[in-house]
Design a protein around this nucleic acid. Structure first.
Length: 154
DNA sequence: GCCAACGTTGGC
DNA sequence: GCCAACGTTGGC
């Protein structure tokens, strides 16, 4: 039984088009520095899980494509790289603090704008809409997943 | 650029 | 362990 997730990315950092053009159309989800989100990746996300690829902090925020999780979480390489903005001096290779997981393209879709998600009764309870939500990965219910798919067909 | 919301840090 | 200050997120 797969789970479903919404994963936020700033298009300037990693956009749906970047995923389309990535080797094997797969990108490692690095740079997560929030414990709750890390725990999602480490403890809950499984290969085959469905992903709503969401563009945030941009002119047109919304769902821009569908993807799936491949492989298991593993140590986030950027935590060990002093030159990386995601470097964490408290992380060691013996005791890594942060994980990454691979995300593979399923398909690019039309943009499902945030405003449309907000306005859709069947999507109004999505975690990403919760007031003050700042998690870059949030769970999606099977019903919400199906509702998004249906809406993308319109 | 503004601002609300929230997580993290660090002094005590 | 408390909590104020600070930094970040992210829509608008």
């Amino acid at each position: 039984m797969p789970n479903y997730w919404l994963m936020k990315s700033e298009p300037a950092e990693a956009s749906i088009d970047d995923l389309v053009h990535a080797p094997q159309q797969t990108l490692p989800w690095t740079g997560v520095r929030n414990y709750q989100v890390r725990n999602f990746m480490r403890d809950a996300m499984q290969p085959g899980d469905g992903v709503l690829f969401y563009h945030s902090s941009c002119a047109c925020p919304g769902v821009a494509g569908l993807a799936r999780i491949v492989g298991q979480a593993q140590p986030d390489a950027t935590q060990f790289e002093p030159a990386s903005p995601y470097f964490d001096p408290k992380a060691t290779r013996e005791k890594p603090r942060w994980v990454q997981i691979d995300v593979a393209l399923q398909r690019k879709t039309r943009l499902l704008p945030l405003a449309e998600i907000r306005g859709a009764p069947e999507l109004a309870e999505m975690a990403v809409l919760r007031r003050g939500n700042r998690l870059s990965i949030t769970p999606v219910t099977p019903a919400q997943w199906l509702a998004v798919l249906a809406r993308l067909e319109r």
